[in-house]
Design a protein around this nucleic acid. Structure first.
Lengths: 100, 100
DNA sequence: CAGGAATATTCCTATTTGAGCATATAACCT
DNA sequence: AGGTTATATGCTCAAATAGGAATATTCCTG
């Protein structure tokens, strides 16, 4: 699954948000999001296939954590567009630059 | 439509890519992507509803251009995750910093 | 105002996908 | 080994959506 498709789902974005504070077992995500466990597992599988999370086995638990690789790709995709919103500030920027 | 959903579609990403070089009429996008005109119009509508493009009427033509607002939001959403891939370079970064 | 070019809209269909539920697998403990 | 906890998988259904084809709308020109 592509990064773009992976983050299109709000549940998957919520999961990534939770993992910002560090790796978590599935159960913790289920508790915090109030969703059914099978659905959380399925979205975690999707995130894993997209390369957005990695798993670490800890006894009976699976600890999921963020793998930022695909997010860095997204950041890279975004790059050429940055000129557009940066450009909106050009007039101000150049004014300030000249004041230096 | 949310920005995340809007950029999940490859055709819509292609259209945004074409608009990087400036505003274009629908026909130009149709020619360059080799897609049927109604489909291009539909995806442009989706992009417009997502706030990703703006339209300017020029006679019988509609000139579409990028509106970077939602992309800036995406950039903002990405922000907390940057620490993760930046962190991967910390060891190297700090090493280089100390060399200065 | 008639015709033609550019674009939008509608209808239909096939595919995808997320949720719910039931069930299966895996690991730990005694 | 048996029971319990943690997680994954399979099945089915309903909703969303992209594409194709036909049609409608808008605007310019003569």
């Amino acid at each position: 699954m592509l990064i773009f498709t992976a983050i299109a789902d709000p549940v998957r974005r919520d999961i990534l948000g939770l993992l910002l504070t560090g790796e978590k077992p599935v159960g913790a995500i289920v508790d915090e999001l109030g969703l059914a466990q099978p659905n959380v597992s399925k979205q975690l599988k999707a995130l894993h296939e997209a390369g957005l999370v990695q798993v670490r086995i800890d006894g009976p638990r699976r600890l999921y954590r963020i793998d930022p690789g695909p997010l860095a790709e997204l950041d890279n995709w975004l790059q050429p567009y940055r000129a557009f919103w940066a450009g909106k500030l050009d007039a101000l920027d150049e004014h300030l630059m000249r004041s230096d």
